[in-house]
Design a protein around this nucleic acid. Structure first.
Length: 109
RNA sequence: UAAAGUAGGCGAAUGGUCGCUCACCAUCUGGUGAGAGGAAAGUCCGGGCUCCAUAGGGCAGGGUGCUGGGUAACGCCCAGUAAGGGUGACCUUAGGAAAGUGCCACAGAAAAUAGACCGCCAGCGGCCCUAUUUCAUAGGGUGCGGGCAAGGGUGAAAAGGUGAGGUAAGGGCUCACCGCCCAGGUGGUGACACCUGGGGCACGGCAAACCCCACCCGGAGCAAGACCAAGCAGAGGGCGAGUGGCCCGCUCAAUGCCCUCGGGUAGGUCGCAAGAGGCGGGAGGUAACUUCCGUCCCAGAGGAAUGACCAUUACCCUUUAGGGAGUGAUCCCUAGGGGGAACAGAACUCGGCUUAUGACCUACUUUAACUC
RNA sequence: GUGGGUGUAGCUCAGCGGUCAGAGCACUGGGCUGUGGCCCCAGGUGUCGAGGGUUCAAAUCCCUCCACCCACC
């Protein structure tokens, strides 16, 4: 299981699922993100970046950085659905900042 | 050299590791190829395409507005005309106010049928004052009915302007020049320009106020629309008329249309990437553009791909050291450190417009200053 | 994708071509009171979202842009 890929079945794609996780999941705040967790057989990722975060370029960049984090650290993540919501300052971060902020909360030692 | 004007360009490159989307080949491990923009943006216009409606006409409603051309079309582009701005290169603006209605605050005498506050002018009548030693004459003030619109003052705007003659004072009252109006001619497809003659002059501004004139516009949008698969359950009421603004007209009489309640599904394929396409060249045209030949195939997602990290080399800024030019401010070269690199992400598609955009570059032109 | 709305004083809103843009609340100062509130008097307050244009004159009319909000499929 060496794959660092990010496949379609690892994405949360249905609006219904997003709502279920927001309502029933465990909620964690960090400086630039809100993270919802709900235990599941597979590890899956959903990302929400609203228009309040910035324009399309900034929103895409935030999503790509979060996907990169998921992909590279998949081995150490817990077995659950992860939903990450970006807050306002998020476009100013680079990958190092994102890693620093998310690893402390999500990764096993 | 500096400051401007116009037209345009570029929107870092290369390599490595780990990834994403699509196509093809292999086949369960992979390999090869392709993969954001000049604005992809805002959604301000106009087309293509699809469905619905449609004999045709009228009235609403909306849009455009100097002239000619270009175009699939446009509110866009090109060429010109006039007016205004700028020393200039250049830029900006554009139907009709003698069809009608309406508005023009404040100030001012008066604001669109002109009018007469101060004023100017002569006449008439009485009274008062002054001067000339009485009569009387002259001057001034006041009153009455007239003439005038030069001057004053108000305003954004005061009913042609300047000068001369003339007059009781004045006035296009007359004349010259300028402006305006009318008629004719010439040139131009035309906007318009020029010339000749006539008229003393009539016509304030606002249509981004209503409006008039000319031309254009059927409606909705790829969640259009077509097919496949899965699934369910229909019931009640209304319309006699319906026709996606209205009317006439026209057509139909149903398996039609509308409303309410209830039930089911929200999956896949196509549309969906060869186009008013790009590049190079020839021909026509002042140009926009058209046409012919050759050549190329260049994103296609669907909680939505085109990325992350590292290295090197260019570019710009700053700083340190060394060297060079110069009296100097400063500039150039070499080496090193630090920093910066904009605006922004395709969603059916094309033509424009508008707005955002760091640093840099190119061409032509103008104006200043200096040198030869 | 389509259609619509809002932006005016610190806040909530009027005003829709013509004096120096108003009202309520709030704020400041004074009076009243031993003190505070209530009450009374006086006062400050604005690039009318931004930039152009039309007009003698624009918050108002016309363009372009910005921000926010709503509705429908």
């Amino acid at each position: 299981m060496k794959s660092f890929g990010f496949f379609k079945w690892e994405k949360i794609r249905k609006k219904r699922e997003f709502l279920e996780i927001t309502n029933n999941g465990k909620k964690i705040h960090t400086r630039h993100f809100i993270i919802y967790l709900r235990s599941n057989r597979d590890k899956r990722l959903g990302i929400t970046v609203s228009h309040l975060v910035g324009n399309a370029v900034k929103r895409n960049r935030v999503k790509r950085l979060i996907r990169e984090f998921f992909r590279l650290n998949k081995e150490r993540l817990p077995r659950c659905d992860i939903l990450i919501v970006a807050k306002k300052g998020a476009p100013l971060l680079n990958y190092q900042n994102v890693y620093g902020e998310l690893s402390g909360v999500l990764l096993d030692k």
